[in-house]
């Protein structure tokens, strides 16, 4: 099977199971796309940041990115068409039949159970990303990356403060803040011999 066809099939499956917004894709991308060696996990993290800071649907951005990294322009086209096609077909079906399939009790029961499962899956990715970003795996075992931990505490503090004040947190603000802290921690502080 050619890579292009595999990309299409993989992202078709991902599109079919993306329920509740683009981030629901991340566990799939981690399992399907990273394990096949198409992109690295740090690439995925960087793509998330770029996808958040560029216009367009998050899911489309990230699929295009994975596709183009895996197999150039044709790979991007295959991944993007793959991720969009389930949406298109399902909605076309619903619109055409003008009957609401969501009223079907079996569909509702399964969606009600799939949502908490997706929360569980993304929660695991959160832990996985914490392990990757906040700790450096060396021998023996893990050692904490103190600078990353400090950045994390700052960002978490900002997030909790904003939420506590009942204000919305803009993802782009988080990205800009974290980029700023990254530059200060890894770039400026070593120059100042701190």
């Amino acid at each position: 099977m050619s890579v292009i066809w595999q990309l299409f099939i993989t992202f078709f499956k991902i599109g079919l199971f993306t329920i509740g917004g683009g981030y629901a894709m991340i566990p799939f991308i981690q399992q399907e796309v990273v394990q096949k060696g198409w992109v690295s996990i740090t690439d995925v993290m960087d793509f998330i940041a770029v996808s958040e800071s560029t216009p367009g649907p998050f899911a489309v951005n990230i699929s295009t990115f994975c596709g183009i990294t895996a197999h150039g322009f044709l790979g991007a086209a295959a991944a993007t068409i793959g991720v969009v096609l389930p949406s298109f077909l399902i909605i076309l079906f619903i619109a055409k039949k003008s009957s609401n399939i969501l009223c079907n009790k079996y569909v509702r029961y399964s969606l009600d159970a799939i949502r908490p499962a997706i929360v569980g899956l993304i929660l695991y990715v959160v832990f996985e990303f914490m392990k990757l970003s906040l700790f450096t795996s060396g021998s023996p075992g893990f050692s904490a990356d103190i600078k990353a931990l400090i950045i994390f505490i700052f960002l978490a503090g900002y997030f909790i403060f904003r939420t506590y004040k009942k204000k919305k947190v803009n993802p782009i603000t988080i990205i800009l803040l974290s980029a700023f802290f990254g530059i200060v921690m890894y770039g400026v502080l070593p120059i100042l011999n701190l």
């Binding site: 959160v126 906040l134 980029a179």
Partner: peptide, 20 residues
């Protein structure tokens, strides 16, 4: 900057968990 951003992504994912 990207070293910092990879830490920020954790917060973004946590936000997605809360949203879903």
């Amino acid at each position: 900057a990207f070293k910092g951003i990879r830490v920020g992504i954790i917060i973004l994912l946590a936000m997605a968990v809360l949203k879903i």
